[in-house]
Design a protein around this nucleic acid. Structure first.
Lengths: 205, 205
DNA sequence: TCGGCAATGTTTACAGCGATAACATGTCTC
DNA sequence: GAGACATGTTATCGCTGTAAACATTGCCGA
């Protein structure tokens, strides 16, 4: 019997009827799958198969496929934030911190192409630029403060917002262009572009 | 009989067995469809239905779905180039031309979200930045010359490339962030970011 | 003028997909 | 121990992309 239906071969599995922690297993399998496949090749059924569970079992933990993918995006968001905070701390903040965070952003995108694209397309807008402190997200808070610190003291609120958006645009645009093979990946080029982005923010006009 | 199969009701159609120019009809219908649907909602069968032809007829003109979508991307690329050249000519070139082209780029992305995303993800890399004159693409040629003209005279080849890439990154990043609802769409913000991008190129460090 | 061939349609069929409904099994609580 | 509830399963539906076989048409050479 091939896999035309939702069935799963219980004989071959050493687990019992219940999985234990299916939700996290599905998320892990999903993230694994994103590493080697493009977005439209990611199927709910295959993720379920990887975990060794019937396709419909997924619906006990997620209302639909989009929700499962959303959970993958959340995980990616946390990881990206973690990497950025780490990069900033290692570099000691300030302008070197800004550069390091930018590089971490581009690197994450290049290392996780499908996931990164999904995060951007489907996430409900992180609102990096919203200056007012929101919720508990200390990672983003740190980033905002970092950008704000780079902007010259006399700058208006509006100038700060534009400068921050420009910095984000450069890094994001560079990441996307390289991700989409519009521009060849080149570490030196990444460094050069990010460096001049930082200069742009620091002298924000 | 509902539409569970590939069939098409010949009675209701006033055309004969042959369509006339199915290829362009499919491309037009496809572009129409992209206006109202997201990428994963675009189905080959529905495009065929719009044209009033069986799903498999598509395969007489395109090897597979990807090829059909590729044709849509080509069409989008031509339109984008046309808009950019038009914008540049209207503005008289130089730095105003640079700004106008950037705005046209962002506007096209915002006006054609699905198509633009598809163009970037699936197109074989336009290589805007490759300075050597390639093929016959006069539109891109014009853009390259325009960017090159903005860069200070003393700049090296490498500096020019970095400056051009940075400009493209800013515009592309801004377009993608707004497209993905990470940043609210705001004409004034677009102008401000593009303007400082131009300044960045003109003073390229 | 006609006969056949290449181009371009059609129907039929299949496997994979996301999703719903009905059913099965295990766990936890009283 | 009983039964409620969570979490599995199979069966089935309608949709998708695509291959194979068949049908119709227009065109080109005898």
């Amino acid at each position: 019997m091939s896999r035309k239906d939702n069935s799963v071969n219980i004989e071959n599995s050493k687990r019992g009827y219940h999985h234990g922690d299916l939700r996290v297993a599905l998320v892990q399998a999903g993230l694994e799958m994103l590493k080697t496949r493009s977005a439209d090749e990611v199927s709910l059924r295959e993720i379920a198969r990887m975990v060794g569970v019937s396709a419909t079992a997924v619906y006990r933990h997620f209302p639909d496929k989009a929700a499962l993918l959303g959970a993958l995006c959340d995980e990616g968001g946390r990881e990206l934030a973690r990497l950025q905070v780490e990069a900033m701390k290692k570099s000691g903040g300030g302008r070197p911190g800004f550069d390091a965070v930018g590089r971490a952003y581009v690197r994450f995108a290049l290392d996780n192409p499908t996931l990164f694209r999904m995060m951007m397309t489907t996430r409900p807008a992180v609102d990096f630029l919203d200056i007012q402190p929101d919720r508990d997200n200390s990672a983003l808070q740190l980033l905002r403060e970092n950008i704000a610190a780079l902007v010259p003291a006399g700058a208006s609120q509006e100038q700060r917002r534009i400068a921050a958006l420009q910095a984000w645009s450069i890094v994001h645009g560079l990441a996307m262009l390289m991700l989409d093979n519009q521009v060849p990946v080149d570490e030196a080029v990444i460094d050069a572009v990010i460096d001049s982005a930082a200069t742009g923010v620091a002298t924000s006009r």
